[in-house]
């Protein structure tokens, strides 16, 4: 049977920054082949195929629907596997090997994490589930 892929609309121009990404423009329609939880989605648009940030897409059917999971205020333990220095004021800076609590897993790959009294957005690709 044919595989039906979800169609998404591009909501802002995106310029590729590495080889396996593709450049897309506002209102382009893309089919999603793979949704990676790090926030990079593999898509095809006409003859182009490559990765683009999930945050630049909205579902064609039901753009107002929230696809993100609900926040979990109890938190889920993760360990940082790479350091990240906050570039925006709503982000959190962490070094390698810190234990944090993930409060909200967003599809765009930027998760809300809590460390002590602090919280902020952190790249999910720099986190590994504790105990794994």
């Amino acid at each position: 049977a044919p595989i039906i892929l979800d169609t998404y609309r591009v909501i802002a121009d995106f310029e590729k920054t590495s080889k396996h990404e593709i450049t897309l423009h506002t209102d382009d329609l893309v089919e999603i082949v793979e949704k990676n939880e790090n926030g990079w989605w593999f898509c095809q648009c006409e003859s182009k195929r490559g990765w683009i940030p999930a945050s630049y897409l909205e579902p064609l059917d039901g753009p107002d629907e929230v696809e993100d999971a609900d926040p979990n205020y109890e938190g889920e333990e993760y360990i940082t596997i790479q350091a990240y220095k906050a570039e925006q004021e709503d982000e959190i800076s962490l070094v390698v090997g810190e234990t944090v609590e993930v409060i909200h897993k967003l599809l765009d790959g930027w998760w809300v994490v809590r460390k002590g009294d602090e919280n902020g957005y952190f790249p999910s690709m720099f986190l590994s589930k504790a105990g794994k």
């Binding site: 802002a12 920054t17 396996h20 793979e34 790090n38 926030g39 990765w51 940030p53 945050s55 930027w110």
Partner: peptide, 22 residues
């Protein structure tokens, strides 16, 4: 075959999207 995703974090949502989230 699908290549591995980029090794850098994806960019934060564009300003258009942040307005919608707010």
């Amino acid at each position: 075959s699908i290549k591995n995703p980029p090794q850098n974090p994806p960019p934060r949502p564009p300003p258009e999207m942040r307005r919608k989230q707010a």
